[in-house]
Design a binder for these strands. Structure first.
Lengths: 224, 224
DNA sequence: ACGCATTTGTGAACGCATGCACAAAGTCAT
DNA sequence: ATGACTTTGTGCATGCGTTCACAAATGCGT
């Protein structure tokens, strides 16, 4: 989608994008002590159709029992494995503005599988201060973080002007996974994955849909 | 994709999702004083292929000139119109935790077309305090906001437990566009649009891609 | 042990999106 | 005015994703 690969290892991109949702639903079920779910129930919890769920799961092998359903714990473990969440991924957040600080403190960020090992900022005046229990480090510390902490994922929470700069430094330091919150298109070399989260874009899509609702004209009488 | 409609008014969903990117690139060009762009240049700035860009733009009518390119100002105005950004959309942010406060202060939020008219929280102890220049209001004020301010879009930045509750209250108050930052699947009646931004999901997708990189096994020797 | 009810896994049809390749349409220079 | 060049707009083919519908497989009750 972003760079080159369309689908890897036989698991389609669209399926991968839904796996986190399934995993979340399964975790919730497990916490409630449920041991087995049907595709019908699980798909409802994840907000997709039952057929889609079954097809998705079929891409990672058969972990269901016909006539019964899926073993909650077993399936959760399998998805965790496929997504690569068995190990812990060290994450660094770059840019300690409003958004960066919020992300650093955000509980949802510390979901199983990820650990914020560092927060950095380009501004020397912020370096040394504490943010969300971590001491803000300088950009120059990036290579050391990769070497010593195994830093694998960089989250860009800077203003748009600095985003490409930060991306370049991340790549140079050896980080090959980037989550970008800045509203710019990053250019990175092949082999580096970038995913973008853009609030403005989402709002604009909502605006379009809202406008369509208020003007349900079919626009047929145009030839007049 | 989410609820019912696949594509409205002849403009495909996939195209709508890319229009904000084109608009951003065009705005940047206009600021630089550029008056005309080719599909080649513009598509590069937006990070898509030239053919895709032309096909996308063809869905909203012909605003280009063959042999020359697109008039930057004209095209920007047209996309602004189609996306429904000519008017201002009143937005409310619900949940004044770390994320909510950051969103309220986030400059990117005040992009042309949107205005944060209120911030609310369920917690009575926060009501009355100031956050990002606005006084935090109570959930009970929602209907009045819709009536008096024309509130159209609600941003949910609460913990997952309260998200469905807040969504219900938004819908009851008449809000039909919701941007959800909580990691839960919201159930809303038809005619209400929900878009979800999920940090955990994005990270997990990155983790999957990263793992695929480290284990480029083609998984062929399985039958043994 | 046997049949019935249930639910998965998947082959096949369909629809949407992408990318190619080229004709249509316009500009510019002479 | 004419020709050469440039760039859009689009018909067509291809591929991916979704959905349907059903056969295969399992459990359960008798």
């Amino acid at each position: 989608m972003s760079t080159e690969a369309a689908s890897r290892r036989g698991v389609p991109d669209a399926t991968v994008a839904r796996l986190p949702g399934y995993l979340r639903a399964l975790t919730a079920l497990a916490d409630d002590g449920v041991v087995s779910v049907s595709s019908e129930e699980l798909s409802a919890l994840a907000g997709v159709g039952p057929a889609k769920l079954r097809k998705d799961l079929s891409h990672l092998g058969s972990y269901g029992v016909r006539g019964v359903g899926y073993d909650v714990t077993m399936l959760a473990a399998e998805i965790t494995e496929v997504l690569g969440l068995a190990r812990d991924w060290p994450v660094a957040i770059i840019g300690m503005g409003n958004l960066g600080r919020a992300l650093a403190a955000y509980r949802g960020f510390a979901t199983r599988g990820f650990k914020v090992v560092a927060v950095l900022d380009h501004d020397e005046r912020l370096v040394g201060l504490r943010a969300a229990g971590l001491v803000v480090q300088a950009m120059a510390d990036l290579p050391a973080l990769v070497r010593e902490q195994g830093l694998a994922i960089g989250v860009i929470a800077t203003p748009p002007e600095s985003a490409q700069d930060v991306a370049d430094q991340l790549v140079a330091a050896g980080v090959r996974s980037i989550l970008n919150f800045a509203p710019v298109v990053l250019s990175v070399p092949g082999g580096v994955d970038v995913r973008k989260v853009d609030l403005g874009t989402e709002l604009q899509i909502l605006a379009f849909l809202a406008q369509q609702r208020t003007v349900p004209t079919t626009r047929t009488a145009e030839v007049s």
